[in-house]
Design a binder for these strands. Structure first.
Length: 758
DNA sequence: ACCGTATTCAGCGCG
DNA sequence: TGAATACGGT
């Protein structure tokens, strides 16, 4: 056992030492929040608290995993493994698999992801013959989700005059009806959506006093990470579980609450002290991450928000470099400027790619940076694309597994019944839906015995249906006799799915085939895991089955286990995705009105404050050097649109910036205003003009002697070399040079500062 | 049943 | 612009 207190500062130590009774830790950016949480769990374990009595709720799976690893390091593995640590969803799914029978769910209930839910809503809208222009599935699902977050079931929703009024005014009076049908269909499919995992947990604790008591006794110590991002149902569950002994510790930073748009309630953290009058509050105000410059600028930015818990973030770190500000004529040039700057810093300071991150407001902004980085052969990775488990082919195979495990799972059935094609088309399925509804049984029952339910199909189709049902049943029979991997592969082959993908020789088809192989490998890893960290020995065997894998996989997002080797890359991601991360060099890009802050946020003060917190989060990701950038014109939906610098830039005082007298910044450039007068100028012409005015090619001195192929040159890092090719113009002019020491390199003349030898 | 073309839409996204 | 989906023709 280590003396864990040595590694903590005083504020951190006090927070960790306080174990009994409610407490709140307000942790400024970079102040060691995770450290406090992990050390607190370690401290509890060292004091002899049974790990089974500790509940630690995190925001992401990744956070839970990393924290668990750290705690294992601190106290020794066997104990820490048994702490109930995970996301709200994964912890409560686990509880509902045990307790769900009380509410009519099987222990193998399916978890519908957003795509499944949307399809179901979409089907219901179609079945009700509603105008799909008016009833957009995503919007309706948002209303339903919001209702569930606020503990309103379908009955309560339909009795709520205010909600009815809103839906009526919005021209969607039947939203409540859709909600009722949606929930009924989930139930008959033995399925829960993501919100149900929380709502049903609440209902369980609310309706079954013995269940409440059981879990209150079990979770004697409760810790909640990122408390500022919890929503109402999460808040209620925590309150109920903690009501008995109030050994609850919440950790968060109101200044970093950035998920209000999906129901997170910042009031939860702001009113914690009112909820628990006996609570202690600890503030972590020393920042270990960033320079004084960055911390100072961040403090000034967030000071513009009204509602917050007072704190003063400070640091002992160096003053550091000033903040850079890039202004470019277009988003394309913004990409070039940022990529060029990354290249320059890499060269000057011998830095790895991984020292850099580009953070943007929306995913659509990534393109100009991708292209510019690729042109310079800079390795990068984009985070937040389509995750592995959301790919079509992966979901298809998973749908087979789902159906085998839970035959009531209607979304899964619809997905695979005719994939690969087996002649069961739309018409047949529509008939089956009608028959199932008429008799009041599940689709699966109709399909597996079409005659009995009077399905009006010809004998050929009836045979096909029965063959399909027989196949699924044969898989089901193997559930307990084969391990997860063997059965998964058997299903992939026997269903014809693998063959179908194998026959597609297009590059995309090959990739899909490989994804299936990857999925099967993941299952193999899973089935070979020696022990699962379950509550008691009895579950361990079960965890190696396909059902066990499926239960896990539904709550996974990114397959981030294999990126251990290729970690050296520039990171491109949205600011939301960057929460909790840090990088030596950070570029926050696209700082323009209507983009950041976004257009939708300008109507309400609360939304604008959330945007500002988002900006605060972005700025505080930087450790050593921060660059802010904006473009005067940006391609939006295919049209070059003029844009104004973000109001947030005005909140960074000039003395924090390294180009304080950069001409024309305070009054947005002549080029930009010229183009904003003319709504759609001839793009090429206008562009050139703006480019000249803004002089984005500074740093490239045209008077220097021109570098030509055949010349011998010297580079400060690569040494002497011979110029092979020179191409491009202006700031994009680059040379291919062969260096005996390191081989062939492409260099941007703008940054490489090559010395001509002869 | 399937494929190519037309149309539409465009915010961040945990589980 | 570009991706995702709807539609209409074969």
């Amino acid at each position: 056992m280590k003396d864990i207190f040595q590694e903590l500062n005083e504020a951190q130590r006090k927070a960790v030492e306080h174990t009994d009774g409610p407490s709140m830790v307000i942790a400024g950016a970079g102040s060691g929040k995770t450290r406090v949480l992990t050390f607190k769990v370690a401290h509890l374990l060292n004091q002899g608290v049974d790990p089974f009595n500790i509940l630690a709720l995190t925001f992401t799976n990744k956070a839970a995993r990393e924290m668990k690893e750290r705690i294992i390091e601190l106290v020794g593995s066997s104990d820490a493994r048994n702490v109930w640590m995970g996301t709200f969803h994964s912890i409560f799914a686990r509880i509902l698999r045990i307790e769900g029978h009380r509410m009519g769910y099987g222990s193998n209930f399916t978890i519908y992801d957003t795509e499944d839910s949307k399809r179901l809503v979409s089907n219901i809208i179609k079945e009700l013959n509603l105008d799909k222009k008016m009833y957009v599935p995503g919007y309706i699902l948002g209303r339903i989700s919001n209702a569930k977050i606020n503990l309103l079931g379908p009955e309560a929703y339909n009795q709520n005059a205010e909600l009815m009024q809103i839906d009526k005014m919005a021209g969607k009076p039947r939203t409540g009806e859709i909600y009722s049908l949606y929930n009924r269909r989930l139930k008959s499919s033995d399925a829960m959506d993501f919100d149900d995992l929380l709502f049903n947990t609440f209902l369980l604790l609310d309706r079954f006093p013995d269940a409440l008591l059981k879990y209150q006794r079990k979770f004697r110590y409760i810790l909640v990470d990122e408390y500022q991002d919890t929503n109402h149902v999460q808040y209620m569950i925590i309150r109920m579980l903690a009501a008995d002994n109030e050994n609850i510790c919440v950790v968060g930073d109101d200044a970093q609450s950035i998920y209000g748009f999906r129901g997170a309630n910042i009031q939860n953290i702001l009113s914690f002290r009112r909820d628990y009058p006996d609570s202690r509050t600890f503030k972590l105000e020393q920042n270990y991450r960033s320079t004084k410059t960055i911390v100072g600028a961040a403090n000034l930015i967030i000071a513009n928000n009204k509602e917050q818990i007072f704190k003063e973030i400070w640091t002992q770190n160096d003053e550091g470099a000033k903040i850079s500000l890039f202004r470019t004529p277009t988003d394309t040039e913004e990409g070039n400027m940022v990529a060029g700057s990354i290249f320059e810093h890499m060269m000057n300071h011998q830095l790895p790619y991984s020292a850099f991150a580009i953070l943007y407001r929306t995913n659509a902004q990534s393109r100009s940076f991708e292209e510019a980085l690729r042109r310079r052969n800079i390795v990068y990775r984009i985070y937040g694309g389509l995750s592995f488990y959301k790919r079509k082919e992966v979901k298809d195979l998973l749908a087979y597994f789902r159906l085998v495990i839970n035959s009531k799972d209607e979304e899964a059935l619809q997905r695979v019944i005719n994939y690969p094609a087996r002649g069961i088309g739309k018409t047949t399925m529509e008939k089956a839906v009608v028959a199932a509804a008429a008799v009041g049984v599940s689709m699966w029952e109709v399909i597996s015995d079409p005659r009995r339910f009077g399905l009006d199909v010809n004998s050929g189709t009836a045979t096909k249906l029965q063959e399909f049902a027989t196949m699924i049943r044969s898989f089901n029979a193997m559930l307990n006799t084969r391990n997860a991997y063997d059965l998964a592969r058997h299903i992939a082959v026997s269903s014809g799915l693998l063959k179908d993908l194998y026959e597609d020789k297009t590059p995309e088809g090959v990739a899909r085939y490989e994804n299936i192989e990857e999925l099967l490998n993941a299952i193999k890893d899973f089935s070979e895991q020696p022990f699962a960290d379950q509550e008691s020995g009895e579950v361990q065997e079960g965890m190696k089955t396909l059902a066990g894998f499926l239960a896990d996989v539904a709550l996974l997002t990114d397959a981030d286990d294999k990126d251990k080797e290729d970690r050296n890359h520039v990171s491109l991601m949205t600011i939301h995705a960057a929460k909790g991360l840090e990088f030596p060099y950070v570029y926050v890009v696209g700082l323009e009105e209507n983009l950041f802050p976004s257009m939708q946020s300008l109507h309400s003060r609360a939304d604008l404050e959330e945007e500002r917190r988002l900006f605060y989060v972005a700025v505080t990701r930087a450790m050593q050097h921060l660059t802010l950038s904006f473009a005067e014109n940006r391609y939006r939906w295919g049209v070059l649109t003029p844009s104004d610098p973000s109001r947030f830039l005005d909140e960074v005082p000039a003395n924090y910036l390294d180009q304080p007298h950069r001409a024309g910044f305070m009054a947005p450039g002549a080029g930009a205003s010229a183009s904003s007068v003319t709504p759609s100028p001839p793009p090429g012409k206008n562009l050139k003009k703006v480019s000249n005015l803004a002089g984005s090619d500074e740093g490239y001195d045209a008077n220097e002697e021109e570098i030509l192929p055949g010349m011998e040159v010297e580079h400060q890092r690569f040494g002497k070399g011979k110029v092979l090719v020179v191409e491009g113009y202006g700031g994009n002019r680059k040379a291919t040079v062969f260096f005996p020491a390191v081989g062939q390199k492409q260099l941007l003349l703008k940054f490489a500062r090559l010395k001509i030898i002869k």
